[in-house]
């Protein structure tokens, strides 16, 4: 092939700075969205477990809506449409405070929360009913049985899907570039259009994504092993 690789024109001080700030925004977006998503997911899973009809129904609607619409469309909706529906003062506040980042974070968090709450729910359903019975037969009441016996097992059972959704969340932050968040994919394209060294810069960016993904997979593996209930 006649192509000559030239990484030196991509890895100048300026572009390295761009890449670092891209990684920083990607990680911030991941961490912020993860925390919001986890909290919402727990609330949704608990609401669903109450068996209170309207709550169950509301959670089901939330989950289905967020799982059956492309994340990009959700992000675009939050960015273009949602501010129109907000009071003027909120809109001003958003514009003054980096609205792209905040809205992308909310959109990604809401979508991930839907998936995570399903992971938690299937964890709860996978705990055999006999475990609950055994707990009750000792004289533990409902709450004690849930908190000592059922929920700890459910959380362990939902670790693998939770890790998977965390990885997807990290990868999905790249979608935020569509509304101009300066994360890693966005910065990569900036450097590309500055230097025209397309292959080099995309190789570097892909490498960065892979390293971060592998770290998430590796940590996820450790957590899975730590909580595997001694089956291995």
């Amino acid at each position: 092939m006649g192509y000559e690789f030239d990484f030196s024109s991509v890895l100048t001080d300026q572009y390295i700075d761009w890449l670092i700030s891209g990684v920083r925004i990607t990680l911030l977006l991941t961490a912020g969205a993860w925390i919001i998503a986890f909290v919402i997911a727990v609330v949704l899973a608990v609401l669903r477990a109450t068996n209170f009809r309207p709550a169950v129904w509301l959670v089901a609607v939330f989950v289905e809506v967020h799982q059956n619409i492309p994340l990009l469309v959700q992000v675009l909706f939050w960015y273009f449409a949602m501010p129109e529906l907000l009071p003027e003062a909120w809109r001003d506040w958003l514009v003054r405070n980096n609205s792209e980042f905040i809205l992308a974070m909310i959109a990604i968090a809401m979508c991930t929360a839907a998936y995570m709450s399903e992971a938690l729910r299937s964890g709860l359903r996978a705990v055999p009913v006999t475990q609950y019975e055994a707990g009750r037969s000792f004289g533990f009441n409902y709450l004690q049985t849930m908190s000592y016996i059922v929920v700890p097992q459910a959380l362990r059972l939902s670790v693998p899907p939770m890790v998977n959704h965390s990885l997807l969340l990290f990868k999905n932050t790249s979608i935020a570039m569509a509304i101009g968040v300066h994360e890693l994919t966005y910065q990569t394209r900036q450097i590309d259009s500055d230097t025209f060294r397309t292959f080099e810069v995309f190789l570097v960016a892909t490498g960065l994504y892979l390293v971060l993904s592998f770290i998430i997979m590796f940590v996820g593996n450790l957590i899975e092993r730590r909580f595997s209930m001694g089956t291995r």
């Binding site: 055994a134 707990g135 037969s137 533990f140 362990r156 001694g230």
Partner: peptide, 23 residues
Amino acid sequence: NVNTLRRDIGFVFQQFNLFPHMS
């Protein structure tokens, strides 16, 4: 209270029902 009652009755199941997440 059913829980107080059960504290004084040991119960051993056919399928053991040990709690797999605990030693």
